[in-house]
Design a protein around this nucleic acid. Structure first.
Lengths: 237, 237
DNA sequence: CCAAAACCTGACCGATCGGTCAAAGTCATT
DNA sequence: AATGACTTTGACCGATCGGTCAGGTTTTGG
């Protein structure tokens, strides 16, 4: 159940960078292929989020995608390849939010934008967040190289920006790496642990109002936690 | 895969409260039973944490416990019952930390003690935390009644204490429920997402020093987030 | 010391899993 | 209309899953 040669049948060894250990070589593919792969990946995201890797069956994914099971194997070869392709798609979204952190920006504005972005992502793509969470909780066997290489470097780079702000006395001295751990945890919990959130709040579903409220609470808490001023709800500059 | 009659063979319907929908009726049992059940539960905690509910096989749990598979079924009947018993044991630990929150205490001291307690739990029982996380991420089907009843009430009760502190002007106005969501997320991430933490920090293992550092960061961040003073590292009253 | 209760376990069962494959169907290009 | 690449799919396979059970061994209480 761990490391395997990964012969990768079905999918032809054609294009695709193998830079990190994640991205899977993919044949060029025509129009039909692109459409069906997208349908399968969407279905896989839902089923993997609900049941985890081993709990998700190719049969269940196929039914959700409205295709016969053998069709999934035609496009992705193995369950593992399908899963890794999905993870790759999710990771691309995951790192986008980092763009808000730059040395030229105001710390409060940048961090607030980062938190709002991550909260919006938890709201719009909770299934993707759950797949990601599940992968890491169970050891991140598929994305560990990515975490140790790309993510580590990105956090170092963005962490240097934050340390710059601290050196300039513009925010409280917080270890940037632990700051990111906490921001990730606080924002993603509204996607990954949504059942718990809804149970405690007594809501069958979270409406937009509930989520806006949650976002305001997290932004305010995080800014104060960084020793930054919290902008009032309705008073300008 | 959802609701079933749950005939519960093997285990005799004897004692055990059915107050919430979780605790499983258990026969009185002798000395041997208590010892073996504990061994099985420990093994189950590790295997469920590593592989999730469906990914964990009774065979794997049995091997880890050093017992034949049929023995597990003798004591717990079904995989589901074993899992629910384990969850019940974990939930008991999960709520203990709430004891720190009381109206007679100082807000900063109480919240710091709460965070330290949860961080210590993440350190000492990461496997239990992962089982809990996995259960909630995948819909909390086994413990939803607990979340909506006992946990909801506890959060309301402890939230009232915090609202009291706010009304007295002793801390910033934070929605207590969201405060708990954030505290749970920040502290549990060091157990549930430990792979990510270690990858970003570049540590193969987290030593006590690393965890102490993390605890200080989280405590300071949380106190500031609540508008509370952060005690200096080594200067008394 | 002895019966009854508790405990133990190898062998087995039906169901479901991921994956394979050959044969048929579809499509654009010439 | 013919060709070749791409796509579709039902049927099938070995492995593993959770769970059962008969019959043995060990422990316990009087």
């Amino acid at each position: 159940m761990a490391a395997e040669p990964d012969t990768d049948p079905g999918a032809a060894p054609d294009a695709g960078t193998e830079a990190d250990g994640l991205t899977v070589p993919r044949p060029a593919g025509g129009r039909t292929r692109r459409i069906n792969e997208a349908r399968i990946l969407d279905a896989a995201e839902a089923v993997f989020a609900e049941a985890g890797y081993t709990g998700a069956s190719m049969q269940a994914i196929a039914e959700r995608a409205g295709l016969p099971k053998a069709n999934l194997h035609y496009y992705f070869g193995t369950k593992r390849t399908l899963y890794r392709t999905l993870l790759s798609r999710i990771l691309d979204m995951w790192v986008e939010a980092f763009d808000h952190i730059g040395p030229e920006r105001d710390p409060a504005e940048a961090l607030a934008a980062y938190v709002r972005d991550k909260m919006a992502w938890s709201r719009s793509r909770p299934l993707a967040s759950k797949v990601f969470a599940n992968e890491i909780v169970h050891g991140a066997h598929q994305i560990e190289p990515y975490l140790s290489d790309k993510l580590r470097r990105t956090v170092e780079e963005k962490g240097a920006v934050i340390e710059g702000w601290i050196a300039q006395g513009r925010m409280a001295p917080v270890d940037p790496r632990h700051l990111f751990f906490m921001l990730w945890a606080m924002t993603q919990t509204y996607a990954d642990f949504d059942v718990q959130v809804r149970a405690v709040l007594g809501r069958a579903r979270l409406e937009d109002d509930d989520h806006d409220r949650a976002t305001r609470e997290v932004v305010a808490f995080a800014l104060r936690g960084c020793g930054l001023p919290v902008p009032g709800p309705e008073q300008g500059s």
